[in-house]
């Protein structure tokens, strides 16, 4: 993928462009946001094409999580526009645009009770009723992510952090979303499992992936990089 990176002469002003003749799945246009007296973003513009991969780097407090939450409409920018799948994110369409995205975060407590019951409840959500619960698909995903089928009978509060992160990813995969937002989603996993997840997503080139991670495994050729720490960008 052809990548042109442009760093503004002004500090804090970042423009990252992944120019290609692709459909733009995600577009941030001149996003500015100040949180607790700190300027997190100043006219940040980012474009990610359909099927594109963007790796967000930066230390804690640099705004990685905020940026991902902004795409989901959980944090609103002070100024600028967010476009998802060609639609500008507004109050009217935020709930339907969220249906195009999957969000997995680190150290997430996703619920109580049996793991399988949780999946079934997700499928009972009004918006998901059109998708039917396919146990064999769940079992094959568990196998892909090296979880045994007994995981389904475990209590979510007793599952280890690494298992839970994989389980959370599996649930989102069952919903087959276009866009995957992963906030340090591989942090609790050991190296071989991190690689397993990366290669799994590598095989799904129709998905748009936005990842914030400290893990080197995501540093790959075909990933564009947005470094919030430098308020600029590098490859």
């Amino acid at each position: 993928m052809l990548t042109i990176l442009y760093q503004s002469v002004f500090l804090q002003k970042t423009v990252l462009k992944i120019t290609a003749e692709f459909y733009r799945m995600i577009e941030l246009q001149n996003i500015s946001l100040q949180l607790n007296d700190r300027k997190l973003f100043d006219k940040l513009s980012v474009e990610v094409p359909a099927g594109g991969r963007l790796l967000i780097l930066g230390g804690s407090g640099s705004g990685k999580t905020t940026l991902l939450r902004m795409l989901l409409g959980f944090v609103l920018p002070d100024s600028g526009k967010i476009l998802i799948d060609g639609e500008e994110l507004t109050l009217e369409n935020v709930w339907s645009l969220r249906q195009k995205m999957a969000y997995v975060s680190q150290e997430m407590q996703i619920g109580r009770g049996k793991a399988e019951t949780f999946i079934k409840e997700v499928f009972k959500f009004r918006n998901n009723r059109k998708i039917s619960y396919d146990r064999s698909k769940v079992l094959s995903l568990l196998e892909d992510f090296q979880l045994n089928s007994g995981t389904l009978d475990k209590d979510l509060e007793e599952i280890s952090g690494g298992e839970l992160q994989r389980f959370a990813i599996i649930v989102t995969l069952l919903l087959d979303r276009k866009i995957y937002l992963m906030d340090e989603a591989t942090s609790a996993l050991d190296e071989p499992l991190k690689k397993l997840i990366v290669s799994y997503f590598d095989n799904m080139d129709n998905k748009t992936l936005i990842i914030s991670s400290h893990d080197n495994v995501w540093h790959k050729q075909n990933y564009s990089i947005l470094n919030l720490e430098e308020h600029g960008s590098s490859t």
Partner: peptide, 12 residues
Amino acid sequence: KRYLYLLSLGAT
């Protein structure tokens, strides 16, 4: 995160 995760899973 749990709340946001559920919303992103399509929950109203």
